[in-house]
């Protein structure tokens, strides 16, 4: 190969490399953008993704009026600071008041920070010791400072480890699925023992999503019961998944 030919091929190949590198950069951004869009669409179809339910304000403050609700993530911090996962700007609520975490089969575990007082269904929760014995369940009332909040869980979550009694399906209902009895929301206490605040108003009618969740009752441990697996969508074979993966 002559020197001139070598130089020409060298130059052409290196500009080709540059072109491919530029394409790689563009393709990487396009890939990231497409994935982001796809994820956004999935979240649009699953508005409750990443959350376990909602906290409805029964009694709050001027900044947090009653009937306000916020989605509850699986774990995080509740406090009055804006960087908290659940922001409760009420008197008596510290900047970081408590940590909460969801535990399948048990409920929402509450762990107050040092010097913070918390009541779950009127029962004080201590930081150390048996805080796991008083988890927040569907309809449980949480009192922090002057705020009173009620937890409403999504219906498909397994949130209680109580022994369940199978309910005989109603004759002629045509459904063999079992649903546990509805857990009635607990009545909030009349007097707040911490702040001696006046009795807060009666629990409001929950929003449609929550009321339907409560009405349809909460199935216990749905994922562990093979009989309760959805029948409409048969499990795909591994070969099908591979085929889909390689189809591109």
């Amino acid at each position: 190969m002559s020197q001139e030919t070598y130089n020409a091929v060298f130059l052409a190949s290196h500009w080709l490399f540059v072109f491919f590198a530029l394409m790689l950069l563009l393709f990487a951004f396009s890939w990231h953008h497409a994935d982001r869009k796809e994820r956004k669409d999935r979240f649009k179809n699953l508005p409750g993704a990443g959350t376990i339910g909602e906290l409805v304000v029964l009694s709050g403050s001027n900044e947090l009026p009653p009937d306000t609700w916020f989605p509850v993530p699986r774990e995080g911090i509740l406090g009055s600071l804006r960087s908290c996962d659940l922001v409760v700007p009420c008197p008596g609520v510290r900047s970081q008041h408590l940590d909460f975490s969801w535990q399948d089969g048990t409920g929402l575990l509450i762990r107050p920070r040092v010097g913070c007082e918390v009541l779950v269904d009127g029962v004080p929760v201590s930081r150390r010791g048996a805080y796991a014995d008083t988890p927040l369940l569907h309809g449980s009332v949480l009192q922090i400072g002057s705020a009173v909040l009620r937890l409403q869980l999504f219906s498909a979550l397994s949130h209680t480890n109580r022994p369940f009694v199978p309910q005989t399906p109603a004759p002629g209902s045509g459904s063999a699925q079992w649903f546990p009895p509805v857990q009635q929301p607990m009545q909030p206490p009349v007097q707040d023992p911490y702040t001696s605040a006046p009795a807060y108003p009666a629990p409001p009618i929950p929003p449609p999503l929550q009321s339907s969740a409560a009405d349809s009752s909460v199935p216990d441990q749905p994922s562990r019961d093979p009989a309760r697996q959805p029948q409409s969508e048969p499990r795909r074979k591994r070969a099908d998944r591979w085929k889909e993966d390689w189809s591109e």
């Binding site: 999935r42 699953l46 749905p222």
Partner: peptide, 13 residues
């Protein structure tokens, strides 16, 4: 995996 589980739970609900 978490998102798939959420989709499963939403379907159950």
């Amino acid at each position: 995996a978490d998102l798939a589980e959420d989709a499963h739970l939403a379907m159950l609900a």
